[in-house]
Design a protein around this nucleic acid. Structure first.
Lengths: 333, 333
DNA sequence: GCACTCTTTGTAAGCGCTTACATTTCAGTG
DNA sequence: CACTGAAATGTAAGCGCTTACAAAGAGTGC
């Protein structure tokens, strides 16, 4: 693999000149530029990004921490972030934290050791203190889908409470009064926020928010099935079921159908997230759009603007409001 | 950020010694090791991976090229590869090629410029010649889901022809004789292989493989809908529909239902890939399992074994055979 | 106490670039 | 034609590590 030295030799110029034509920030005469470019082409020269990074203290790469590499939610997030950064020649280095404190921590350390120019974190397990310390360091950090007190400028979040509220409101507006809820793990902020919004909507509508109408799931399909079984058995008069994400809604739909309930005639179901497959379900799932792509794009823009001094016109927003996506799984009571 | 130099100073030893305790391959006395470790801890020292890579010519990272960062198929692939490599302390650098020759090429060049120790490529658009040249270079390369002549040892593939055959056979065994097919873009090798298998099964069963029963889609949901419309309109006597992937099967299901056809009573549908959501569909989709995870794991193992000299017991296999996943969308005619 | 070997530690030369600073070139001036 | 000063190019010192080689210690046996 040819080095810059061989190129300089072939072109009959110094190292520095070759470096200059590569980076294009200093003036180089057209004649020498030509010579260098020819030499590069002939040698099939390809700059060593590692060496460049070491010397310039700039890696042109942004670290992205997600919880999982699979699943629509993270797929959309990774995809948007990557596209936004690639437009400006920046690259993402993706790592997975698996919602485990140690693994998230290790993943972040890894990104730091790779000397990323900035970090975009979808960190769920690591502590607020850790994130705060991180943000205070000179490494630019952005947090996605999590609000940490005192770090507002670094956080990009969805108003989950509002989302939970909207889902319940949608059901109430259709005349439902007996409403079941399958929640995510309550220790997760987004899950508890959604639930809080749900309760607020019920209360405002003068419906008692009964705790035993709430089943705590784990955001996975199977717990949607379990939740459905539990609710059907104990509260057969429930007419609407709201799930804290689309996976669980899907599980609930399957379980409901197996129990002979037709959707939405016998039971209305509302999901949350609006992941890709929610539209493939039958009936198509009425759900709450979780603008994860907007979050990703905004985070990427923040980095471009604050780290790479890119001229970007769009304003940076930090709070995103979800909205109802009306499809066919919710109907009049 | 502390450097190795500061650590050596604090510990009262030389640079080399610090480097030695970090890498642990040379003998260092317990006493000095302790001193160094203490110094590291006190300074919060974190090795600079970039500098390590430059000096050692080893990045401990493997480049992974996928077509998209979203979607179950690639999600599963990325996830498996990452997990397998992480076990041995290796990391993946993921890039997306978007099934575009230039972008795939650029992505590969990027991975090369990052000096990945090896490349795992799910390359669809780049030419066979390019891949061949790449494999001949000293950079270890593995190709996933594509067979390139002369590169057998580097390729990990699914027997798509067999998969297509199995899908058709499954329908035939249920007594279907009028069978529609929604294919992927025929220029794609996997799409044409699946179709070839389909035709072989029909022929072997003494059923004429009619070209107009085949609709060429693009692997996306919407083309499944289009295909369904086309077939229903022109060949209303079709009793079974086989789709070259699950997305299109899902689209076809939607369109069929909208046309008043019940599945599988009026029309049986078989998919291909067995992506996560195929199980969420209603009725649960009968499909062909595409062992993409096995491919990914095997590719990762190949790298571990051949590049990092890891002791791995499992044999390396190159051809994976798909199988039928029986669910509820296919029934007797 | 000495020559010898085997460990442990130190020295210093890179790895392939960037960039501050020094030097050269050269068009434009009086 | 010598003299400027801006523009173009070169020189060399790092960036933070690894590692071959050299040097120094620590055991041995006599």
């Amino acid at each position: 693999m040819a080095t810059i030295y061989e190129v300089s030799e072939a072109a009959g110029v110094s190292l520095a000149t070759v470096s200059r034509v590569m980076n294009g920030n200093t003036k180089v005469s057209d004649r020498t530029r030509k010579k260098v470019e020819t030499a590069m082409a002939e040698l099939g020269y390809q700059p060593n990004a590692i060496a460049q990074s070491l010397a310039s203290n700039r890696t042109n790469s942004v670290g992205l921490l997600v919880s999982e590499l699979h699943g629509s939610y993270f797929g959309d997030l990774m995809s948007t972030v990557e596209q936004a950064l690639k437009l400006y020649g920046k690259h993402v280095i993706i790592t997975a934290g698996h919602v485990d404190e140690k693994r998230e921590h290790d993943a972040i350390e890894f990104l730091k050791s790779r000397r990323c120019d900035a970090l975009i974190l979808h960190a769920e397990a690591v502590s607020d203190e850790y994130l705060t310390t991180l943000c205070k360091s000179d490494l630019p950090v952005v947090v996605i889908n999590r609000k940490v007190d005192g770090l507002d400028d670094h956080c990009f979040v969805v108003d989950n409470e509002k989302g939970g509220y909207l889902a319940a409101q949608a059901a109430i507006q259709q005349g439902h009064k007996e409403i079941g809820y399958i929640s995510g793990p309550k220790f997760k902020k987004d899950a508890s926020d959604r639930l809080a919004g749900h309760k607020r909507a019920l209360t405002e509508a003068g419906i008692e928010a009964k705790d035993d109408h709430i089943f705590e799931g784990d955001f996975h399909e199977s717990s949607g099935q379990e939740g459905m079984h539990y609710l059907k058995q104990h509260f057969p008069d429930i007419t609407a079921l709201i799930c804290a994400n689309d996976e669980m809604a899907s599980g609930a739909m399957t379980a409901a159908r197996e129990a002979g309930l037709e959707i939405p005639q016998h039971l209305s179901i509302v999901g949350f997230d609006n992941v890709l497959f929610s539209r493939y379900l039958y009936p198509k799932l009425t759900t709450i759009n979780n603008p994860i792509q907007s979050l990703g794009e905004m985070a990427a823009r923040w980095v471009l603007k604050n780290v790479y001094d890119t001229k970007i016109n769009h304003a940076i927003e930090h709070l995103f409001v979800p909205e109802v996506v009306e499809r066919h799984s919710l109907s009049k009571r």
